[in-house]
């Protein structure tokens, strides 16, 4: 029993279909539970008031925005090394989820920033890094869409993902450096991890787990769709070949 058995599209489909209902259920329980707990059963922050509660959307979305890219990187590596089609399709399936997570993180960040910092947008290193990550997602998705041959598209996007990961890390450091060069100190950035007290933390963990499970479920579901689309294209091609012969 090896994990590579699931590289077979049919095996992947049957297994993911069995796993999906519990995954949907678990993510719904965790997300709803975490959000309701966080929104209605935690005290307001003495400094930020009720605005702090957007943290329950903002932080999990930001977490998944980065982890989705990381998952795509791993899936791309598996495709490049072992050439399992399902792996390439999973990377393709994760990208739109990742870009939406990035967008949620950016938008909730702006909504949070308005009352807290008095501005919708600041070129804070962390915000800027997410904007750059958004651009990387955009390029990755556009490249998948632009190429007809699925294997060529998988190869090119996989290499773009590898190269992009290196440059995303470089950009992160460059952006950190760049903004300190302008404003000294980080008056606008707020380090979430250290600020959060336990009362806020537990529902936050629930939301983070909920987002993670939701992401896994979405990627399974979307990979299934990609596999079916590939299968349909393959069936059409087979019919055409049979007709030609």
């Amino acid at each position: 029993m090896s994990i590579w058995e699931y590289a077979n599209p049919k095996k992947f489909l049957t297994t993911s279909e069995r796993l999906l209902p519990p995954l949907w259920g678990l993510s719904a329980v965790l997300m709803l539970g975490g959000l309701i707990w966080g929104f209605f059963f935690t005290p307001d922050d003495y400094r930020q008031g009720a605005t702090v509660k957007i943290i329950y959307l903002h932080v999990p979305a930001a977490l998944m925005a980065i982890n989705a890219w990381f998952m795509m990187l791993v899936a791309s590596l598996i495709w490049v090394i072992r050439r399992h089609h399902v792996s390439a399709l999973a990377a393709r399936a994760a990208a739109p989820v990742g870009i939406v997570m990035t967008l949620i993180a950016l938008v909730t960040g702006a909504i949070w920033g308005q009352p807290m910092w008095g501005t919708w947008w600041a070129w804070d290193p962390r915000l800027t890094s997410f904007l750059v990550l958004f651009l990387f997602y955009l390029g990755y998705i556009a490249l998948w869409e632009a190429i007809d041959n699925p294997d060529t598209a998988a190869d090119l996007t996989a290499i773009l993902c590898l190269v992009g990961s290196v440059f995303a890390v470089l950009s992160r450091y460059a952006v950190n450096f760049w903004n300190q060069g302008l404003h000294q100190g980080a008056s606008l950035s707020l380090d979430k991890e250290e600020n959060v007290a336990d009362v806020f933390a537990y529902p936050l963990y629930a939301c983070m787990a909920g987002f993670a499970v939701f992401f896994v479920a979405l990627v399974f579901y979307r990979t299934g769709t990609e596999i079916r689309a590939r299968r349909m294209a393959a069936l059409i091609a087979r019919e055409r070949m049979a007709a030609d012969a």
Binding site: L135, F136, L170
Partner: peptide, 20 residues
Amino acid sequence: LLLSLLVMPLYVPVLIFGAE
């Protein structure tokens, strides 16, 4: 256009340090 979309994010670190 796709070329610009793909290359621009990769140019970010060079632009930041160069312009700095």
